[in-house]
Design a protein around this nucleic acid. Structure first.
Lengths: 232, 232
DNA sequence: AATCAATTCAAACGTCTGTTTGAATCATAC
DNA sequence: GTATGATTCAAACAGACGTTTGAATTGATT
């Protein structure tokens, strides 16, 4: 019995494959990562992926699922805590935003257990064209988004829901780039002297809250667009 | 002589291939789009891509180059105009942001000539793992980023450059998601009643400027992170 | 009408892809 | 020790990939 020595084995090979796949997906993308690359890095036989997961698509799904389920569980727990403390009163928008994006940033700051790797992967996958991946993400996010958007609607009762929805969307974009940009994107040549992940959190929070609280846009007539076009 | 009838032919097949590739890259991604898909859609022979461009990688590069060069030319022209009007005085940050992101949004609003398609593609390509695509984008953006960041540094002389750089990065993320989200991302199930691209511009501008002008973050000791972790 | 370069075409190239197979190996239970 | 189920393994599968080839076709120039 090795139950006392090891917490649980649950196929050690399976986990090695998941870790290898996660790292390679970040490095090369989903499509460009082959089964042979994965099993090679995981020191496993080529057939092991199909044995343990059934297919490459199922493996991709499991790579996301194992982390995303936990992340979203933490997010919901944080929101539950806020609502319990508030005792029915509307929440502060800043606390809601912190609960959602702070939880993700905390995971991104964890370089020990692959959290950072995964968040880089997740950030770019929101815009992944692959149909079944998008479908899967939408399902994983359904409950969390419903809860958090609902909380924001209540917290900002005077703001049109359409605007809140868009701003939440903008916030997700800013966060994704924030995480990707800490090491992936080098558009800004030779810059980011201060890429301390410890400081990313307050930096991003300030930005997100500033955007969320910004004055509502005023929609002028369609003439504006015509003028802009003519001026160019 | 058909010079009078046609403005320029410059290989009609070549253009059909570029258009087909652009559309397919958005739909399936760079890697998942095959040469046979491209030439099939363009009604061209399989060998036409290698004849006109040399390789698939060179085709990818040209798909981005033909639009990005023009976009960044317009951006620089807009900045030139602002600086000429200001006559040496520092620019308003909002005008700088408008010059950069407004120009991109205007291209994204052009559904007639493929501008919209391209901007969706561009948004997701910033986080593309493919090495040579990233290298190419960095080169294409070098001058524009230097000019715009310089203008923002002067316009916000009291803000640490590090913060400006990060916030510019956040803004790029928000914009990318904004464009992708108008039709690609359906994380937010059944929503976006009002996805009018005419209104996206003021919506995004409000958010971006709110984020840019947000109070600067305060960096507490590393204790904060430890507390957060302990509370969870 | 002949010439020439540009372009198109069908066919094939070797390589890589995800998946399947059936036998070998392992660890555990009887 | 022997049977049993889980796992690993080397090998092969058919199909798709990007690229190359050499001949056929085109359209304008001499």
């Amino acid at each position: 019995m090795n139950d006392s020595a090891l917490p649980r084995q649950a196929s050690e090979t399976r986990d090695r494959i998941l870790d290898a796949a996660e790292a390679l997906f970040v490095e090369h993308g989903l499509e460009a990562t082959s089964m042979r690359m994965i099993t090679g890095r995981a020191n496993a036989n080529l057939a092991a992926v199909n044995y343990h997961f059934g297919s490459k698509d199922a493996l991709i799904q499991e790579v996301f699922r194992r982390r995303l389920t936990e992340l979203n569980r933490q997010r919901l727990a944080a929101l539950d805590r806020l609502e319990a403390e508030a005792q029915g009163a509307p929440l502060k928008p800043s606390r809601i935003v912190e609960a959602f994006f702070g939880t993700a940033l905390a995971l991104a700051a964890d370089t020990e257990h692959g959290g950072h790797t995964f968040m880089r992967l997740l950030g770019r996958t929101y815009t992944e064209p692959n149909a079944f991946v998008r479908q899967f993400l939408a399902e994983e996010y359904a409950e969390v988004l419903e809860r958090f958007l609902g909380a924001l609607y209540r917290a900002l009762a005077d703001v049109p829901r359409e605007e809140i929805l868009w701003r939440f969307h903008f916030m997700m974009g800013a966060m994704s780039y924030a995480i990707a940009g800490t090491d992936a994107l080098q558009l800004f040549a030779g810059t980011f002297d201060d890429a301390d992940p410890q400081r990313l959190m307050p930096r991003l929070m300030s930005f997100l809250l500033g955007g969320l609280r910004a004055p509502l846009p005023v929609f002028n007539a369609a003439r504006d667009a015509a003028e802009d076009a003519a001026a160019a």
